[in-house]
C-alpha cells in the first residue's frame, strides 16, 4: 500500500504492507532509530513516539494507520538544540544504558507540554509505561521535576 508519512516534519512516500508495524517502518524504511524494539507488545515503552503530540507505542500501530498524522521522535525534539528537559537529563546523569531514554524523553515532553509544573505523582504517572531497568527512576523523575520548576520560574 502507498503510505505518506510525516516524520519530524519530513514527508516520506513509502510502499508498505498492511501488516507492517509503524515501529519497524520507522526504523527500517525511514531510518529513524531512536524508537527501540523492546517487547513488541506495548509493555515496555521503548518504542514510544509522539503522534500529533501524544505519546504512543509505535509497536502497537500499523504503519498504514499513521497516514495523515504528525510523527515526532527524539531526533525531532533535539534537532536544532536540545530541550531544557534534555539538558537536565544530561546534567543530572539521569540515564544509564540509555535504551529507554528516547521513549522517556518523549513521554516527559508530552507531560510538560500539557502540564508545565507537574507534581511528583504526575511525573510518575507520565513515565509509568516506560520501563527502565537501570536507574530506579529517581534521577529521571528528579530531572523532570526540575524542568517543571524552571517552567514555574519562567511563568512567575
Amino acid at each position: 500500500m502507498e503510505l505518506s508519512l510525516n516524520v519530524n516534519n519530513e514527508e516520506w512516500a513509502l510502499d508498505v504492507a498492511p501488516a507492517d508495524v509503524l515501529l519497524d517502518v520507522l526504523r527500517e524504511r525511514v531510518g529513524t532509530k531512536s524508537p527501540k524494539i523492546g517487547c513488541e507488545r506495548g509493555d515496555c515503552g521503548s518504542c514510544t513516539i509522539l503522534i500529533d503530540g501524544r505519546s504512543v507505542r509505535s509497536c502497537l500501530v500499523l504503519a498504514v494507520e499513521a497516514e495523515g498524522h504528525e510523527i515526532t521522535t527524539v531526533e525531532g525534539i533535539g534537532a536544532d538544540h536540545l530541550s531544557e528537559l534534555q539538558n537536565l537529563f544530561i546534567s543530572n546523569n539521569s540515564f544509564q544504558c540509555g535504551f529507554c531514554a528516547p521513549g522517556i524523553v518523549l513521554s516527559a515532553t508530552e507531560l510538560l507540554a500539557r502540564n508545565p509544573s507537574p507534581s511528583r505523582h504526575d511525573v510518575q504517572e507520565a513515565l509509568s509505561g516506560n520501563l527502565c531497568r537501570c536507574t530506579g527512576y529517581e534521577p529521571i523523575i528528579e530531572a523532570v521535576l526540575a524542568a517543571g520548576e524552571r517552567n514555574e520560574e519562567v511563568s512567575a
Binding site: 532509530k33 531512536s34 521522535t73 527524539v74 531526533e75 533535539g78 536540545l82 534534555q86 537529563f89 544530561i90 546534567s91 546523569n93 540515564f95 544504558c97 540509555g98 531514554a101 528516547p102 524523553v105
Partner: peptide, 11 residues
Amino acid sequence: VRIDGLDKISG
C-alpha cells in the same frame, strides 16, 4: 557528567 549523556539523550 557522563561522557555518553548527550549520545543517549539525543537519540
